[in-house]
Simulated scan of single mutants.
Amino acid sequence: MNNLLHYKKACGSVIAAMLMIVSLHASAKPPIYTTFFSDLAVAGYDTVAYFTEHKPVKGNKRFVTEYKGAEWRFKSADNLAMFKADPEKYSPQYGGYCAWAVAMNDTAKGDPHQWTVHDGKLYLNYDTDIQAKWLKDKEGFINSADKNWPGVIQ
C-alpha cells in the first residue's frame, strides 16, 4: 500500500511538471507571424518583391520554401532563389509581426499591405493608422523594437 501511495505521488508530480512545460511552451509565440489556421509567412506574399518591385505581390504555390517553421511563397523561381540565398535580407523584421507593436513591447499581426523598406529592411505594420504613427518616427520605433525583440515572443 505504501508503494502505491508513493507511485501516485510521483506520477502526480510528473504530470504537474509536464503541464507546466506545455503551458510555458504554449505561451511562446512563433518566430514568424502566421495566422492560426495557416503556416504562411506574410500571408503568402513574396517578400523579395517588396525590394525588387516595390509593392506587395502574391506568391505562387509552385515557388515555396520553409524557413523558421513557416511556408514562404514567391512570384517566381528567381525570387525564391534570391530568398534562399539570403533569407535574413528578405524576411520582414520582427518575424513579420507589426513593427510598431514590437516597439511598444507587444505583438500584433503584420499586414502585407502596410509595409516599409527602410535601410534595406522590410517592416510590416498592423493597419494604415498604425503605419501613419510608425512613419512619423521610424528610427525611434526601430530602436525600441530592436531592444524588445525577440523578448516579446518568448
Rank of each mutant, 00 (worst) to 15 (best):
L19W: 06
I21W: 12
P30W: 00
T47W: 05
L4V: 09
V42M: 12
G69H: 06
K147V: 05
V14P: 00
W115T: 07
N2M: 11
T107A: 04
Y97W: 10
A26H: 11
Y7F: 13
K138G: 01
V57G: 00
S27W: 09
I153M: 09
W115Y: 13
G140S: 00
T34Y: 03
A101M: 06
S13G: 13
W72I: 10
D46N: 11
F37M: 07
D127N: 15
P92E: 07
S76F: 05
K58T: 12
L40H: 09
F37E: 10
A81Q: 14
S76H: 07
S13T: 06
W100M: 13
R62N: 14
L40C: 00
K121R: 15
V152S: 11
V22C: 13
V22K: 07
A49D: 07
D119A: 10
S91D: 08
K109E: 12
I32W: 05
C11S: 06
V14E: 11
A85P: 03
C98P: 10
Q93A: 14
G151C: 02
D39S: 14
D78H: 04
K61N: 14
V102F: 03
A132P: 00
L19Q: 12
K138R: 12
L40S: 08
K9D: 13
E139I: 08
D46F: 05
M104C: 12
K84Q: 14
K61R: 11
A99Q: 04
E66K: 13
A132V: 06
K89Y: 01
T107Y: 10
P56K: 04
G12N: 09
R62Q: 14
K8V: 12
L122M: 08
R73L: 12
T65N: 10
E53S: 13
K75W: 02
W100T: 10
K29N: 10
M20I: 15
E66F: 00
S76E: 04
K58E: 14
Y45F: 15
T47V: 15
D46G: 09
P87G: 07
P30C: 03
V152W: 10
A77D: 12
K109G: 09
K109W: 03
I32C: 04
K89P: 03
M82T: 00
F83A: 04
W115C: 07
H54I: 01
G69K: 07
C98Q: 08
T65Y: 06
S91E: 11
D78S: 09
H54T: 00
Y90T: 02
S38K: 10
S91R: 05
K29S: 13
P150G: 10
D127R: 06
L24R: 12
M104E: 15
V14Q: 05
F83G: 01
Q93G: 05
L80N: 04
G151W: 02
D106S: 14
K29D: 05
F51Y: 11
F51D: 00
Y33F: 15
F37I: 04
Q131G: 03
